[in-house]
C-alpha cells in the first residue's frame, strides 16, 4: 500500500479542474456554469493546500486557500446577482439566450 503523496492530490485536482471546465463549457444553465467555476476554483485551492503540505510552500499555501474561499464566495454572490438580473430580463437562465454581445 503506497502512502498518499503529492501526485495524488495533483491528479485529483486536475480531474476536478477538468470536470469543472467541462461543466462550465457544456452546460447551458447559468447556475450550472457557476457550479463548474466553483469546481475549478476548488481544484486550484486543493493544489495550493497540497503544495503547502508537500511542496516548498508553507503557511502561504494555506493562506492562499483562505483567499480562494473568500474569493469564491464573493464570486458566487456577483455571479448569482448577474444571473438574477438576466433572469429578470429574459425570464430564463439559459446562457444561449443571453447573446446580446453577438457581433
Amino acid at each position: 500500500m503506497t502512502s498518499v503523496g503529492l501526485h495524488h492530490f495533483v491528479l485529483l485536482s486536475a480531474v476536478l479542474f477538468s470536470l469543472g471546465i467541462a461543466c462550465a463549457i457544456a452546460r447551458r444553465n447559468a447556475v450550472a456554469i457557476l457550479v463548474g467555476i466553483e469546481l475549478m476554483l476548488n481544484a486550484a485551492a486543493l493544489n495550493l493546500a497540497a503544495f503547502s503540505r508537500f511542496g516548498a510552500l508553507r503557511a502561504e499555501g494555506q493562506l492562499f486557500v483562505l483567499f480562494v474561499i473568500v474569493l469564491a464566495a464573493a464570486e458566487a454572490v456577483v455571479g448569482l446577482a448577474l444571473i438574477l438580473a438576466i433572469h429578470r430580463r429574459l425570464r430564463s437562465v439559459d446562457v444561449h439566450r443571453a447573446d446580446s454581445l453577438k457581433g
Binding site: 443571453a98 447573446d99 457581433g103
Partner: peptide, 18 residues
C-alpha cells in the same frame, strides 16, 4: 469574416479560453 467568431454565447468564449 471576423464577426462570425463573435457568437455572443458564453460557453463558446469559455471554450476558446480553455
Amino acid at each position: 469574416a471576423a464577426r462570425r467568431w463573435q457568437t455572443g454565447r458564453l460557453p463558446n468564449y469559455l471554450a476558446g479560453l480553455a
